[in-house]
Design a protein around this nucleic acid. Sequence first.
DNA 1: AAGTCTCCCTGAGTGC
DNA 2: TGCACTCAGGGAGACT
Length: 271
Amino acid sequence: MPELPEVETVVRDLRPLLVGRELRAIRRSKQALRVKWQKGWEKAIAGKRVAGIQRRGKWIRVDLDDGSLLIVHLGMTGQLTVVAASEVVPSHTHLVFELDQPQELRFRDVRRFGSMTFYPRAEEWEVVLSGKLGPEPWDMPQEQWHQALKGTKRNLKAALLDQRLIAGVGNIYADESCFVAGLDPRRSGSSLRPKERDRLLDAILMVLTRAIECRGSTIRDYIGGSGLQGGYQGEFVAYGRTGEPCVKCGSPIQCIRLAGRSTHFCARCQK
DNA sequence: AAGTCTCCCTGAGTGC
DNA sequence: TGCACTCAGGGAGACT
């Protein structure tokens, strides 16, 4: 399940493989992704070179050399890779861009929660994005963070999953961050004291930084841009550890549902 | 208007 | 062995 660290890893992997390369013919599966592929996009993309690739939240932005954009979201099971054209095309591969060497940029997505969209002008995308994405965790102004939590009655889990509040945190890293901060994910945002709000942001930054160092977490389907798996799943202290002893106090990790998501925490350590 | 719920999708896992 | 069922979850949009 790609969240910020996984998407960052994909982008870092792809950058040396993709920047400067020409996108040639495009092949598509018949199955629709979450955003329908428009006729005309193929013609607009073919022959363009990749000028850059970057991550924003869980979104991947591929800049083409004429100022247009390819915007990718990996959803739950999306994989974006550059591989030799001779490699077997796995099932559920929905988009294939032939590159100017015998390689291909491939988008595979088993559950099809992901999307790939084309924007002729970058400004259009920036307008769309500005309405649904808060600051990157490392760029979060302290005052904005405090105000955002103070101003919501939602529980911490729901607040952390809200991309407008902070960009890039998903179910795994929300649980891990609450554990590291020692905060109960059921607490309402407005109930946090200033020091607790600071502790939570510190925990988020620490967890995400470490997860990126590990190339993200591979649960089932996630792979990086060059096909390698992540390693942070070996360092989970909360997520997926239902019934296992808390690494701090030994009492069993609980699993409840919050904000419609499975939520893992230690009822003794997280207050 | 903020907050909550439902839906989309497939494969793995479980129980009978 | 086979079938029915549940679960995983990001984001859009509907609903309260």
